[in-house]
Each structure stands twice: as structure tokens, then as C-alpha cells.
Design a protein around this nucleic acid. Structure first.
Length: 641
RNA sequence: GCCCACGUAGCUCAGUCGGUAGAGCGCGUCCUUGGUAAGGACGAGGUCAGCGGUUCAAUCCCGCUCGUGGGCUCCA
């Protein structure tokens, strides 16, 4: 048979040759690293005999599919160990995921995380034994009989679905362990020397909270101990940067406890960070042609009925009775901005009208989903609503995307743009006039294309009320977070009958865009803390400069210097505590204060200062003006767009 | 909300096989006047998350509630 390689070279092999043999024919190194193959576009086991001509790709851990196969195989290895150690364990599913894999089990009397030691030991034993993964295809009936015998009720449920979908059934075994599985798998358990069990959690069968809760065990596996170690270090680094740890440590905020779960209390230092972010945001928005507005935290329930939030968002809203009427705490700012838009009859001359507000919203979130600043019950949306004509759409979208990227650049975030469009097979699911969708979706696409930005189009991910552009931001550890979001809304203009008078003297339906750049100020600060590992850029640092007189005799000079910096709008504190300089430096370092000015006898006499920079160390003695210049540069607020 | 784990001083954590508790840091006072990541002494701080139950006796055992964490689901 003729085998074509990715570089288009061709080689003849006897029918029945396996991918592994072909890999070995190329180089022993490749045979060692090979995990699976892609043959004529189909992923297959290395050990599957090939019979026809075709294109082959030999996949290793470097290939996304190879990585997935290894991780998925490791989930089988882990399942095998669990089932051996805990007889009666029934299997759920065990896929590979970003960064590793998991397997869901129904384990009778599972001891929890303490079982990891035993499971790991058993897995290691099986790795050493180098047990082959064996694929077997069978009829639906045979498979049912097999899993009925072993009482695998979840697998039987999956089987039913496979049959309904008309898929062929395959089963993989490694030693005594056997699992319903499409594959492919790596050749043997010996490929998984570098694995680690990570954590355990409850998970509903099939993700449905009406189903029983299974025990999920997370693990990961790599191709080398070096890569595994790196990954574990990354996880540790992420733990160290956890904003829930750093935030309270740095005196930024306090969440929950007596203050109520999911509610954030900003301490003085954290309030400074917030105010800086918000002030910059306001200045930038004014410059970009937004008008700042402010709306109440509560509004009559009728308003939420008109906006329909009352009907589809009720479970997340808080209600209160006032006089004879029912009110709701606002879960979103839009209706408030609508009231402002409708305050007078609008002319096309006023468009685009861009309203913006740092609006605090309240949403009921289930207790289990609350998570530090990332998921709270009261938060500040940096909301903006753009009302415009059809002709203005492309330009407005580009303006917002550029504005969003400007904000990400300030903080050195990477990004990825996603364009979410409607599911064309289900047009009834969406609000608004289908004609409008047909106009706006290509407009969004054009806007992005014209800008030359890379983006991914996701069909069917649009909100029911409109298509959207989501920007995911990538932090210093390479993790992606929900970033700016720009959403079209066909629903609200219709529900509230939002119009403008065109130059033809006729009323027209206005187009409306929601957008948030920080998303939630709270969550964004959480992201910043983790992104910078708590070392916020100078302009955001709650304490920018600490002045440290070495002895009491330099107090007077220290106060002079403090006043100079304070007059320059630098947040400066004098630490004249009765402690050694070493102690006070340590305190400033752990407090992540960017600049320290040490003033001893020599400096006081000469009018100089000794500068120390956080994380860098002693910069030596210098003229005060020189130090001022360095500090000012380090604390400069970002340029406006 | 659900499954699992956890809750001891402001923080990080010991401890009590049931007899009402301890360290370090931090805080206060004093001594020390110091040169680039912890000077010393003394002291104050706890209804051992809350409420019930078992017991002669509960911080410890049991139950419930609240809170926190890991996930599921959801989401800015």
C-alpha cells in the first residue's frame, strides 16, 4: 500500500503494517514518542494494522490530538486503579480536558483525597507493567451484555445513545479493566510515566443537577517529568497569586463572613485601586465621546417587566416592597440608560449617543458558585450603551473594539477575539427582526475584518437578543479570562420602542449596543491581582512611596520629602516607626510598595535620598530630583486613548 | 442549590484518645537610635463559628444552622 507523509513523500508498505512500525521505519525516536496516528483524517491507534493507501500523520505529545489521547488514556489507567482498589465502583465518563483529564466515578465509601496515595501507587505499578491498550469492536447487543454483567449502569445509558445515533461500538481494555470508548488510545500504560492526581470534586452525572452526584478525580499527564514539573509549578504559582489570598493580605478587600456571602467590602487600600481604575475609565470614556450618567440601584418592577428581565432573569433578582409597589434591585444597568435615552425625542443628529456608567448591580448567585471577587452578588459593571443608526454600526463597533483593546494593552493582557453569531438552524430562538440580524451580523464581521484583527467565529453562541463580540484576555500565566464584551441588542429597542427622528422626518428604530470593558470592576481587579501577582503597576499601587528615616533625627527631613511627594500627587507615607530600617524595608517589600526612600544622616545633610525599588533592591544615593523623576515615571497614569 | 472537605486569637497554624487552650506573626508599652528583607523585653487578645443533643463534664462525640474552600451547574 502507498503511504503519503505530511511532507508529501510517498513510501510503499505491506498491507497490515501498523502506524508504530511506520514510525519506527522513520526513526526510533519517533517510534518512542509516537502516541497515535491520523490516517486519512481519522485518528487511530498506533497499533491498528493499516490496509489501504492513505495519508499518515504520526502524532506525539506536541500535537494537540496526541496530547488528548495520552490524557484520555491516563483517565483509563486511573479508572483501572480506582476500580481495582474500590470494587463496586461504577464508571461515568473520563475525558481529557485543558491541562489534564478527569474521570467521574460512583465509588462506594470513597475515602476522599487520602486515597490518592493508593491510587497513584497502583497506577505506577500498571505503568511499570506496561499493559497494552486493546481495541475491540462489537455489536450493540454484545456490548450491552458486557456492561450489564459488570453492572455499569452509566455505560448502558451511553450505549443507548450511541445506538440511537447509529454509531459503531468499540471497547478498550488495559489488563482487566475495560471501558466503552471511541479511542484512540496510546499503545500501552508505559506511555504514562509522568502523571499526577490533582484534586477531587463532586460532579453531576451528565452535568445535570437532577442526576446523582459522582466523584470526579482530576489528574494530569505529560510526556516528560520536566513538563509535568513545570505544569505543577504553574499550578503552584497560580495558587500563590490567588487574589483571595493576596487581596486581604495587602489590605485591599474583605468578602463575605459577617458582611454577607458574595458581598465585597473595599478597605482603604483597595478603594484607592478601584478609584484609580474608575477615574481612568471615566476620563477615557469622556474622551471617546461617551456621556457619563448615573442611575438608581432600584427600579419599579414594571420596568423589569418591560425589559423582560423580570420573566427570564427573575431567579437572579432581589425584590423589595416600597409603598404599594414592588421594586427590584437592578441586576443590569440597561433599563436605566433606556429611561435616559427616552427622556426626550431623539434626533439622528444626536447619534451615536454613547451613555456610560459604573453601575453597581446585584444578582442572586447560588451560594456554591461564589468565588472571591470573580463571582459575587453585588458588583460594578462598567456599562456603556451605544444608540446609533444602521450606517454607524460598523464604525461604532470598530471604535469599541479598539477602545477595549486599548484597555487590555494598558495592563499588558494578551487577548483572543470571538464573534458569536446566531444558530442558523434555529432562527426562532432569537428576538428581534430577522432582517436586522441579517444586516448586523455581516456588519460585525466586516468591522473585525477591516481592522485586521484575528478572530474566531462561533455559530450559535449569540445571546437570544443579539450577536456579540467577546474578547478573552490572557494573563501573565497564560490563563484566559472573560474580558470585554460587545453585544448587539435587538430586543430592548423593540420592547421599549426606542426611536430617533431621521433626516427624512420619520421615526426609525434605533440600533443599540451594550458593552463592558472591565466587565465587572471587582472581577477585573481580581484578574489584575493575579496577573501582576499583587505587584500592581505604580499608578494603581495603594502606597506608591514609603519614606524611611533611619533614626529619629531625620524625621524632620523625612516630613519635608513626604510633603514634596504629596504635593506631586504621589501617595506617600512616612514610616518613622521605632523599628530597624531592615524591618521597615521588609515590611514595605512584603507590602509591595513600589518605591522606598531611605533617609539617614548622610542624606539629610546633603539633601539627597537613597532609593530602593520593590523587587529590584537598593539603587543607591541620588539627588532628590532624580528620585522624584524615577518615582513620577513609575507612577505615571496610562495615556488616554 | 448539590457532592466532598474544612471552621481554634486580627493572620498562619499546634493541641485536647471528653476534664473550658498554645506557638509564631501582627497589635500595645518600654528598652534600643539602627544604613537596605525580621533588634530585645514585657503585655493585652479566644463563648475553640452558632444553636441544640449525648454526658457528672463538650472546643473535642452526634445533629442542625451559618460561613469558607474544591468542583458541578450558572455567570460579569
Amino acid at each position: 500500500m502507498r503511504i503519503v507523509f505530511p511532507d508529501s513523500s510517498v513510501k510503499e508498505y505491506e498491507a497490515g503494517t501498523t502506524g508504530l512500525q511506520i514510525a519506527g521505519d522513520i526513526s526510533p525516536g519517533l517510534a518512542r514518542n509516537a502516541l497515535i496516528i491520523r490516517f486519512n483524517g481519522e485518528l487511530m491507534d498506533l497499533t491498528r494494522p493499516l490496509c489501504d493507501d492513505g495519508k499518515i500523520e504520526i502524532l506525539t505529545f506536541r500535537d494537540e490530538e496526541g496530547k488528548k489521547a495520552l490524557r484520555h488514556s491516563c483517565s483509563h489507567l486511573m479508572a483501572s486503579a480506582v476500580q481495582k482498589l474500590y470494587p463496586g465502583t461504577r464508571l461515568g465518563i473520563g475525558p481529557s480536558i485543558e491541562g489534564g483529564y478527569y474521570y467521574d466515578f460512583d465509588i462506594p465509601d470513597f475515602p476522599g483525597i487520602s486515597a490518592f496515595e493508593d491510587i497513584t501507587a497502583e497506577m505506577k505499578r500498571q505503568v511499570k507493567e506496561d499493559i497494552s491498550f486493546i481495541r475491540k469492536e462489537m455489536s450493540f447487543e454484545d456490548a450491552v451484555a458486557l456492561f450489564e454483567d459488570s453492572g455499569e449502569k452509566y455505560k448502558l445509558e451511553l450505549l443507548e445513545e450511541l445506538r440511537d445515533a447509529g454509531e459503531s461500538i468499540s471497547v478498550y481494555s488495559n489488563g482487566e479493566f475495560m471501558d466503552l470508548c471511541r479511542g484512540p488510545h496510546v499503545p500501552s500504560t508505559g506511555c504514562m510515566k509522568h502523571f499526577e492526581l490533582l484534586s477531587t470534586a463532586g460532579a453531576y452525572w451528565r452535568g445535570d443537577e437532577k442526576n446523582e452526584m459522582l466523584t470526579r478525580i482530576y489528574g494530569t499527564v505529560f510526556d516528560s517529568s520536566k513538563n509535568l514539573k513545570e505544569h505543577i509549578l504553574l499550578l503552584e504559582e497560580a495558587r500563590k497569586r490567588d487574589h483571595r489570598k493576596l487581596g486581604p493580605e495587602l489590605g485591599l478587600f474583605k468578602i463575605g463572613g459577617d458582611g454577607g456571602p458574595g458581598l465585597v467590602y473595599w478597605l482603604p487600600a483597595g478603594t484607592i485601586v478601584r478609584e484609580e481604575l474608575e477615574n481612568h475609565w471615566k476620563k477615557a470614556h469622556v474622551k471617546e465621546g461617551y456621556q457619563l450618567v448615573s442611575t438608581p440601584h432600584i427600579a419599579p418592577v414594571e420596568l423589569w417587566k418591560t425589559s423582560e428581565h423580570y420573566y427570564y432573569y427573575k431567579d437572579n433578582m432581589y425584590f423589595l416592597d416600597i409603598d404599594k409597589g414592588e421594586y427590584a434591585l437592578k441586576p443590569m444597568n440597561c433599563p436605566g440608560h433606556i429611561i435616559i435615552y427616552k427622556n426626550s425625542k431623539r434626533s439622528y443628529r444626536e447619534l451615536p449617543m454613547r451613555l456610560a456608567e459604573l453601575g453597581m448591580v446585584y444578582r442572586y448567585e447560588k451560594s456554591g458558585v461564589l468565588h472571591g471577587l470573580m463571582r459575587v452578588r453585588g458588583f460594578t459593571v462598567d456599562d456603556g450603551h451605544i444608540f446609533c443608526t444602521e450606517d454607524q454600526i460598523v464604525e461604532e463597533i470598530q471604535k469599541v473594539v479598539r477602545f477595549a483593546l486599548y484597555f487590555l494593552k494598558i495592563f499588558d493582557f494578551g487577548y483572543r477575539i470571538e464573534l458569536s453569531l446566531m444558530d442558523p438552524s434555529d432562527p426562532d430562538h432569537y428576538a428581534g427582526n430577522p432582517e436586522e440580524w441579517k444586516k448586523v451580523e455581516p456588519a460585525l464581521k466586516n468591522a473585525l475584518d477591516e481592522m485586521g484583527e484575528d478572530y474566531r467565529t462561533v455559530q450559535g453562541e449569540a445571546a437570544f437578543y443579539g450577536p456579540k463580540i467577546d474578547i478573552k484576555m490572557k494573563d501573565a500565566l497564560g490563563r484566559f479570562w472573560q474580558g470585554p464584551t460587545i453585544q448587539f441588542d435587538f430586543n430592548i429597542p423593540q420592547r421599549f420602542d426606542l426611536t430617533y427622528v431621521g433626516n427624512d422626518g420619520q421615526e426609525h428604530r434605533v440600533f443599540m449596543v451594550h458593552r463592558a470593558l472591565y466587565g465587572s470592576v471587582e472581577r477585573f481587579i481580581g484578574n489584575l491581582i493575579e496577573h501582576y501577582a499583587g505587584n500592581l503597576p505604580g499608578w494603581l499601587a495603594p502606597h506608591q512611596v514609603v519614606i524611611l528615616p533611619i533614626t529619629e533625627s531625620q524625621l524632620e527631613r523625612a516630613e519635608e520629602v513626604e510633603n514634596i511627594f504629596t504635593d506631586l500627587d504621589i501617595r506617600c507615607t512616612l514610616d518613622g516607626k521605632n523599628e530597624t530600617v531592615g524591618y521597615r524595608i521588609r515590611e514595605a517589600e512584603t507590602g509591595k510598595v513600589p518605591f522606598m526612600l531611605i533617609i539617614g544622616e548622610r542624606e539629610a545633610a546633603s539633601g539627597r535620598v537613597s532609593l530602593r525599588i520593590h523587587g529590584e533592591g537598593d539603587k543607591g544615593s541620588m539627588e532628590l530630583d532624580e528620585a522624584i523623576e524615577i518615582v513620577m515615571a513609575g507612577c505615571r497614569r496610562p495615556e488616554l486613548p
